[in-house]
Design a protein around this nucleic acid. Sequence first.
DNA 1: ATAAAACCTCAACTATAGTTGAGGTCAATA
DNA 2: TATTGACCTCAACTATAGTTGAGGTTTTAT
Lengths: 154, 154
Amino acid sequence: MTKKDKHGDIRRELSVGEVAARSGVAVSTLHFYETKGLIHSLRNRGNQRRYPRGVLRRVAVIKVAQRTGIPLADIQAALAALPHDRPLTVHDWAALSERWRASLTERIEKLTALRDQLTSCIGCGCLSMEDCPLRNPYDTLNARGAGPQLIEPT
Amino acid sequence: MTKKDKHGDIRRELSVGEVAARSGVAVSTLHFYETKGLIHSLRNRGNQRRYPRGVLRRVAVIKVAQRTGIPLADIQAALAALPHDRPLTVHDWAALSERWRASLTERIEKLTALRDQLTSCIGCGCLSMEDCPLRNPYDTLNARGAGPQLIEPT
DNA sequence: ATAAAACCTCAACTATAGTTGAGGTCAATA
DNA sequence: TATTGACCTCAACTATAGTTGAGGTTTTAT
């Protein structure tokens, strides 16, 4: 027999509870990720989810991406661009993490610039919409007339 | 008369629309901030909000704090600790911004550490719960037994 | 004086990222 | 076999940070 029992090594299908235990993610979160298309499962005859072992890597990748501040929808899009339900390869991971590292770098740079401005404004405190770089980071005022002016259009 | 008309310089009370236009924040947001205790207003005989000019600085401070990633509830708490409805002084601002700068620095450091880990893991791709620093940033596994293990207890 | 613009409250809705619970089924163990 | 634990779906709820709209009032401008 090539298929061992529940506690054997070879079995490749995991239940949702096992994935939860091994990945550190709640069962409800795994359900949620599935509704969002971040992970996929098959069902056994009793309609219970059975995951290929590769789901563990997928969840790991999702969690790392989240730590870098990537929204789930973006993570989903990135994963969906890959052939889904072949397990993620090291090469996939390298490509994804390279992208996310770059966006993380960008975020770090923005926050660092903000901190520098904050540092230089601590003694000033003007916070003037027109003059203060903290309040008017893109120098957009006076380009338009009066009226509400969004500072962070993002 | 010491009180000039709507377009004069001396008037110190602002309507919600004026505050919106001058601060770059939507009227609905100002209402919302008021329900959260972040800003305060008086009412005229017609029940319309009238703001002291100091509200502009308050809103500016709120917006800067938000940019550094501070949640509104924390901003509220910080502002509430100050004598409220005397306008914020430069000294107030210095104390607040110093705190927020420190927390921003902390965030930057965490993100930088994450990026460094990401960089060193790009070529590896193990993402093992036990071995990978990305997956187990606090080295908490194996301290407990089996079972679900939250990676980011926050 | 009248019409338009600005204001009021309150409830409901948006988005993100899930969690909780009800009511019912399936699977592993004694 | 029976019971317990794990699983199922679906709806509702949490939190954060607001936005939108309905229905009605006040202020401003002509």
